[in-house]
């Protein structure tokens, strides 16, 4: 249904969902960029963040506490997974790393299923953002606008961490040249642990922020994971700006295609990814020779 109001509505919706996708993808991309590990458990971590927030919300009734706990919990989970499992895999082929994170993802999903059942859980939006916001002809849920703002703020925060702090410098150095970090006389393992935690946090944070929008099921992460891959491939693996650009592009593709026929949204996403691969294999903002 292509009308101007609908076009503008979908454009805005694409921006909102794209920002969230960008945030999740940034987590994936900085983990890969720094550690060289493609984290297939990333979708599960997104889901886990939502559940962690749900637990905190049930206990306190506070949205802010839920978000904070969801994010922090994932930092811890990420760091523990890095310390206990991923660390065994730095010297092994990338395929092994993919396999083990794939397995971790399944374990997380099934643990959540065991703990919470298959029933959906919902976290209500905070009362100050529960209503709808009329924006001319477009009525949009206030909370989704809040999600957009939060995602943008989180991306800005990540940007500052990456480009303005010592940790960020190390991470970026690692993305440029993984050998260099060791030479800087830095405890690489501690940095890796932190980066994995931060990457997991990006997913978990997105998960809890998104929880009031979608309602939670243990299988929530799977489709997000695939979309995240597309985002990262379009933007360029390991590129922070690429993840943001890719996220926004993916969000818009999904939303705008659905005007014509929602059934083709995902297909169109993969068509664009294929085009990018054919025309610019390293991704739109990716560095050449990093594959």
């Amino acid at each position: 249904m292509i009308t101007w109001p609908n076009f503008v509505s979908q454009l805005f919706n694409g921006l909102a969902s794209g920002a969230l996708l960008a945030l999740i993808s940034c987590g994936l991309t900085i983990i890969y960029g720094t550690l060289g590990v493609l984290n297939l458990a990333h979708g599960a971590m997104f889901m886990l963040g939502g559940y962690a927030g749900y637990v905190a919300f049930q206990a306190t009734g506070s949205y802010v506490v839920a978000v904070a706990f969801g994010a922090l919990f994932l930092v811890v989970v990420g760091a523990v997974i890095e310390r206990v499992v991923i660390r065994q895999f730095y010297d092994r082929p990338p395929e092994d790393q993919i396999l083990v994170t794939f397995g971790i993802g399944i374990v997380i999903v099934e643990l959540v299923r065991l703990g919470f059942g298959s029933l959906t859980k919902t976290v209500p939006p905070p009362s100050w953002a529960a209503g709808v916001t009329p924006m001319g002809f477009l009525i949009y849920p206030t909370y989704r606008i809040v999600v957009l703002a939060i995602a943008a703020a989180a991306l800005a925060a990540l940007y500052i961490v990456l480009y303005r702090t010592r940790l960020g410098m190390i991470v970026r150095a690692g993305i440029e040249d993984s050998g260099m970090v060791g030479m800087l006389g830095i405890n690489v393992y501690r940095v890796f642990m932190l980066v994995f935690g931060v990457g997991a946090m990006a997913a978990g944070f997105a998960g809890i922020v998104n929880a009031p929008v979608v309602s939670l099921t243990p299988d929530l992460g799977e489709s997000i994971l695939v979309q995240t891959f597309v985002v990262v491939v379009i933007g360029g693996v390991g590129s922070f700006p690429g993840a943001i650009l890719g996220g926004l592009i993916a969000g818009e593709i999904l939303s705008l295609t659905s005007m014509v026929n929602p059934a083709y949204s995902e297909v169109m996403l993969f068509v664009v990814m294929t085009l990018v691969l054919l025309l610019r294999p390293q991704g739109l903002l990716g560095l050449k020779g990093r594959a």
Partner: peptide
């Protein structure tokens, strides 16, 4: 608005409905 089983988000479909 025809959606697949288990769609994670209906916002696009619903905007079409809203408009």
């Amino acid at each position: 608005q025809v959606a697949p089983l288990g769609a994670p988000d209906y916002s696009s479909y619903l905007l079409n409905v809203a408009n």
